[in-house]
């Protein structure tokens, strides 16, 4: 998974989840949700997906985001990074 593979991530949804399921999970299970468009840079990689892409914030310091690979589908990952959380809050939008 490129650079993100080297980070300490937690897989929230199992392999095979659809992109739509990942978005719905982030929207339903996290009180703080931000939206970005495809090509948004997160952890130094460009995020793929059907816009708007939902990003969840958990415990104020963890980001929940979809990560798509051609053969595996979309992973919903959680990575702790307070600085990246702050950057999301400054650059993403609140509404779909």
């Amino acid at each position: 998974m490129g650079c993100i593979e080297n980070l300490k991530y937690e897989m929230i949804l199992p392999l095979g989840a659809s992109f739509k399921e990942c978005r719905e999970y982030a929207e339903k299970n996290f009180t703080e949700v931000w939206y970005v468009d495809p090509g948004y840079k997160l952890f130094d990689e460009y995020i793929i997906g059907l816009p708007p892409i939902a990003l969840g914030i958990d415990e104020g310091k963890k980001i929940i985001f979809p990560y798509t690979k051609p053969c595996h589908g979309t992973y919903l990952l959680r990575i702790e990074d307070a600085d990246e959380v702050e950057r999301v809050r400054k650059t993403a939008r609140k509404k779909k």
Binding site: F19, D37, P38, G39, G49, L50, P66, P70, G73
Partner: peptide
């Protein structure tokens, strides 16, 4: 994304959900 590459035509082959996400990304 970085505007270093462009095209007049983009053809996306899609037989799974991930490929639809890539197609949506190219559309955007």
């Amino acid at each position: 994304v970085e505007k270093k590459r462009d095209c007049d035509l983009c053809v996306v082959f899609a037989h799974n959900d991930a490929a639809i996400a890539y197609a949506a990304t190219m559309r955007y």
